[in-house]
């Protein structure tokens, strides 16, 4: 569990970090909270010659809420997400999800930016950000650009981010309505066997809007528009929920691992999603 030798860089501003990335190209990786990259380096599954630590860049931290718009700096920790009162009002699903990530020690170090940028299908935040229809801000040598979370993930660990770009912030509109983040895992610290992020709008007893995403059931998070559409215009009665679940199950592609075989995961995915919809509806 000892990593190969590497150079450690600790820039104090974004420009310096981008310059370091440009200088070392493929040999450089940015380090956020370190809870994915450092274990991979210790296992010698990731060889990084130049590690660019973003901890000292103050501009990358913090949560800003402006009217209905939320902007979260990439280096904001999971703990800070949980503790932020304004965020709990604007998007309570974030707090519910963050509390289900690992344990307090990890949440003091792990960042939202690292979680969404790494492209690990097991991470909770990518699916959640797709549910929220969030936008990622990417800074690169030629300035910044924005990419929708729903368009960011290409395959496991493969994203729309270029090697010389840094994900700096996440933005989305405050949610309203009912919400639920439901996650089944084997133990504290585990990735999801299946997890569902659900946000529902209710208007006069009828579902007027729905966004549904699931995690760790394919090589990317799965946001299924048709699952949400199955609920819109209904009272989320069992038949409608069943159609939403069916729509989602048609989209997921789980693989067998130590958590269990495919058949089990598909079954649990349906149960977890059903529970998430029921809970979100009860809060809507």
């Amino acid at each position: 569990m000892i990593p190969a030798s590497f150079e450690y860089h600790r820039p104090t501003n974004l420009e310096a970090a981008l310059a370091t990335l440009k200088e070392f190209g493929d040999d450089a990786r940015v380090l956020a909270g370190g809870h994915s990259l450092i274990p991979m380096m210790k296992l010698r599954m990731a060889a990084v010659e130049h590690l660019v630590d973003l901890q000292a860049i103050a501009d990358l931290k913090g949560i800003a809420i402006d009217g209905g718009t939320v902007r979260i700096g990439a280096m904001t920790t999971q703990h800070e997400l949980i503790a932020h009162q304004g965020l709990a009002q604007a998007a309570p699903i974030i707090r519910e999800a963050a509390l289900q990530i690992a344990d307090p020690q990890v949440r003091y170090m792990g960042t939202v930016g690292g979680n969404v940028a790494n492209g690990d299908p097991g991470n909770d935040m990518p699916g959640l950000m797709q549910c929220l229809d969030a936008t990622y801000t990417l800074a690169g040598p030629d300035g910044t650009r924005e990419v929708k979370a729903r368009a960011f993930y290409e395959a496991a660990y493969m994203t729309a981010r270029e090697d010389d770009e840094i994900l700096t912030a996440i933005g989305f509109e405050a949610t309203g309505g009912g919400w639920a983040y439901e996650k089944q895992k084997r133990k504290i610290g585990d990735y999801a066997t299946a997890a569902a992020a659900v946000i529902l709008q209710k208007d006069g007893g009828v579902c007027s809007g729905a966004s549904i995403a699931m995690t760790n059931l394919a090589d990317t998070p799965v946001w299924a528009a048709e699952a949400g559409e199955a609920l819109v215009g209904t009272a989320c009665e069992p038949d409608a929920v069943g159609r939403a679940v069916e729509a989602m199950l048609a989209r997921i592609e789980p693989t067998e691992d130590n958590r269990g075989p495919v058949e089990f995961k598909r079954h649990v995915a349906g149960v977890i999603l059903r529970r998430a919809i029921e809970r979100a509806w009860s809060r809507a």
């Binding site: 089944q184 084997r186 066997t193 958590r259 269990g260 075989p261 058949e263 089990f264 079954h267 649990v268």
Partner: peptide, 10 residues
């Protein structure tokens, strides 16, 4: 574990 209990039920 979870999947084996599930399999028993199944």
């Amino acid at each position: 574990d979870q999947w084996r209990i599930w399999k028993t039920a199944h």
